[in-house]
């Protein structure tokens, strides 16, 4: 009987889980304040937001592309959402619905242009980044919207039980849905197949148009939710929402072992990647370390993760070679 199956060691998320637990234990040993109710609340809030942003990027990484405009979509939706309520007197459900539609539409434009022109997603989303951001600034003239309905403010502040914020419900639902999408549905598998090899996926009869547009639409949708979550949390709609999303959006999936060439993403590992980034950022605050260190550290973490992934790929290739060698010599 194997009490601790070897299988777990090979999972992407296993090592990350150890890192999360270890860092939690070490930090709370030196600073018991880390486990204080308030601190856990702040931690969960930041996890909530980054989770959505990371998933928005992860699905594009799955198809082997990148989306620079995640933050710009989030920002445009955030100001539209608040602007519609403040200036045009939309009720909350209509404002949410319009916000989501804007996100879907932005994602659709990205996907459509990428797949129909064959130009790299990097350039397309760099262009749409400026288009969406330009619209955002053009509409707001860099002024925030302050008039947020009380119920939204309350939603952003309320706690379910103890330190658990209400806000975390939406990201949890999204994460579960994303796990189901990537692991249990045909369209998720199609995306991974497309990311793995465009040519062979086409030979298998997978429509590139459908895969790419679906992925970008989901990405836009998630970015829109991310933008609105920030509004709930900040209690205002500022035009600079989303400006700082680029690095964290890539950090979590990469730390979670996503292969940037596409075809391999892990929802659980990405989630743990988000938690690691959040814990470390939080720890630096607790230890009163310069906030710019967070940026430097995040950069280093991406590089280290890249090296580790590379090493694991190398080991895996070697293992396969030995296996083939042994098999051919039996």
């Amino acid at each position: 009987m194997n009490f601790f199956p070897q299988e777990y060691f090979k999972k992407d998320w296993f090592g990350l889980l150890i890192v999360v637990l270890m860092s939690g234990v070490i930090i709370s040993f030196f600073k018991p304040a880390f486990l204080s109710s308030f601190n856990l609340y702040v931690l969960m809030l930041s996890v909530s937001l980054w989770l959505v942003v990371a998933m928005s990027q992860m699905i594009i990484i799955a198809i082997g592309q990148m989306n620079l405009s995640v933050g710009a979509i989030g920002g445009l939706v955030a100001i539209s959402f608040t602007g519609l309520m403040e200036v045009h007197g939309f009720s909350i459900p209509y404002a949410i619905l319009t916000g989501l539609l804007i996100g879907l539409f932005c994602g659709f434009i990205n996907g459509f242009l990428t797949v129909k022109t064959g130009i790299s997603a990097f350039i397309i989303t760099l262009a749409t980044l400026y288009i969406f951001k330009g619209m955002n600034l053009g509409i707001t003239e860099a002024q925030p919207f302050y008039q947020i309905p009380e119920s939204i403010k309350n939603f952003g502040n309320a706690k379910i039980i103890g330190p658990v914020p209400y806000l975390i419900i939406i990201p949890i639902i999204i994460t579960v849905m994303m796990w189901l999408l990537m692991n249990k549905t045909q369209s998720g598998r199609n995306m991974l197949a497309y990311g793995n090899s465009v040519q062979s996926s086409e030979l298998m009869g997978i429509s590139p148009t459908k895969v790419v547009i679906t992925a970008h639409v989901i990405s836009g949708f998630l970015a829109a939710i991310g933008g609105m979550l920030v509004v709930c949390r900040l209690q205002l709609g500022t035009p600079n929402i989303g400006d700082s999303w680029l690095l964290p959006s890539f950090a979590a999936p990469v730390i979670g072992g996503a292969v940037l060439a596409g075809g391999k993403v892990d929802v659980i590992a990405t989630t743990l990647g988000v938690i690691i980034v959040a814990i470390i950022s939080q720890a630096l605050v607790i230890f009163k370390i310069d906030p710019f260190f967070v940026q430097i550290l995040l950069g280093f973490m991406i590089l280290i993760a890249v090296f580790i992934n590379r090493y694991r790929e190398y080991k895996e290739e070697r293992r396969k070679k030995i296996f083939i060698y042994e098999a051919s010599h039996e």
Partner: peptide, 18 residues
């Protein structure tokens, strides 16, 4: 590393600027 320069320079961007 053989990783695309996008992700490497994304990381170094943040390191240099920080």
């Amino acid at each position: 590393t053989g990783v695309h320069s996008f992700i490497v320079t994304l990381a170094t961007m943040s390191i240099y600027f920080g």
